[in-house]
Amino acid sequence: MDLTALGWTADRVAELPSGCEPARVLRVDRGRLTVQAADGELRVRVAGVRSVDGTGPAVGDWVALRGDLAVAVLPRRSAFSRAAAGRTSTLQVVAANLDVVLVVDALVGGARLRRIERYLAVAWSSGAAPVVVLTKADLCADVTAAVELVAEDAPGVPVLAVSSSTGDGLGAVRDLLGPGRTAAMVGHSGVGKSSLANALCGRAVAGTQGIRDDGRGRHTTTARQLHLLPGGGLLVDTPGMRELGLPDDGGGLVQAYADVVEFATSCHFQDCEHRTEPGCGVAAAIDDGRLDPARLTAWRKLQGELHRQRVRVDARTRSEERNRLRAARRAGRERSARSR
């Protein structure tokens, strides 16, 4: 297989260890990788390899193969990553080497603007271009109004409406994915990612189910997987994410709330908290209708979450350093005792 169809570029040759062949990770499960190499699809073992950020191979990664063993993860050009659920804030790479992140939500039950904002904040941090895809357009009474509402809340991000049932709008999504270009679909359970994946792939690659009686989505995709599209693009289908922690860099938050950040530049005080301070540019924007106050509230909430996350990471780093020093002292005492 010509690996350029999978996104391989000539400049990556220098990244390959000597005597190795490149392959792209299609799926990760049970300590083994399903990869696409020039010779075809293979199941390979992993030799405890890590990317430069300390995480293991992820769907979309390029790995170096030596026989049936993956011995290295090549440098990532982009990665959609989240802080894993729980108290540790460990980084979890959802998909790597993406050109586009499709933030998927549904045009039924009203726009979930705060949820879309969170996904966009993580998507902007990935290094790929975010696009909002609103599914189930055939079930929406006023698609134009719904798209405009989301577009106002997602500055600088294209917003597309599609119907996987009728095919409306799918061409605009396919246009994003030419040969060798990779997209990942991310979103909550039940928003139509599996139906969209099937429609884009032209075949059933993911199971679909209806919404539960309580209105919550069902997990129909159980593992991340990279699919080759008929037009030559690549699509990563991901399970629904009920928890999506922000990456630690905070850059995505600035881009997702670019309007709030821009209004803040006109504040009279540099340390303005946008509450009751005189000369607040953000408050002025809310007063004259240029900014939805709900966006300011959401921005503050995610900033607070990011701050708490960083505190946890710092605490973990301090704890790991203390443990390292204790182990070094213990080893020193044991060496001293043996030498007597």
Score class of each variant (00 low, 15 high):
1 M>A: 15
3 L>A: 10
4 T>A: 14
9 T>D: 04
14 A>Y: 00
19 G>H: 09
20 C>L: 01
22 P>M: 13
31 G>K: 12
33 L>F: 07
34 T>Q: 07
37 A>R: 05
37 A>S: 15
42 L>N: 01
43 R>K: 10
43 R>I: 13
46 V>G: 09
48 G>L: 14
61 D>Q: 12
62 W>E: 06
66 R>G: 15
66 R>N: 15
67 G>P: 04
71 V>K: 11
75 P>V: 06
76 R>H: 10
78 S>Y: 00
83 A>Q: 03
88 T>V: 04
89 S>N: 11
91 L>A: 15
100 V>G: 00
105 D>C: 13
116 I>E: 03
124 W>R: 00
132 V>C: 02
132 V>A: 07
136 K>S: 08
138 D>L: 09
138 D>F: 02
140 C>F: 09
140 C>E: 14
141 A>K: 11
150 V>P: 08
152 E>A: 15
153 D>I: 01
153 D>W: 07
156 G>D: 11
157 V>W: 03
157 V>G: 12
160 L>E: 06
163 S>F: 11
165 S>M: 12
170 L>I: 13
175 D>Y: 07
178 G>I: 04
178 G>D: 10
179 P>W: 01
182 T>Q: 13
182 T>F: 02
183 A>V: 05
192 G>E: 05
192 G>P: 09
194 S>A: 14
194 S>I: 09
195 S>K: 08
201 C>F: 12
206 A>L: 15
207 G>E: 15
219 H>R: 14
222 T>D: 13
228 L>Q: 12
229 L>I: 11
235 L>M: 03
239 P>R: 07
253 L>M: 09
254 V>E: 15
270 Q>C: 08
277 E>C: 03
283 A>K: 14
289 G>Y: 06
291 L>M: 12
297 T>G: 14
299 W>L: 06
306 L>V: 03
313 V>N: 01
317 T>A: 11
319 S>D: 04
320 E>G: 02
325 L>I: 14
330 R>F: 12
335 R>N: 03
336 S>R: 15
338 R>P: 05
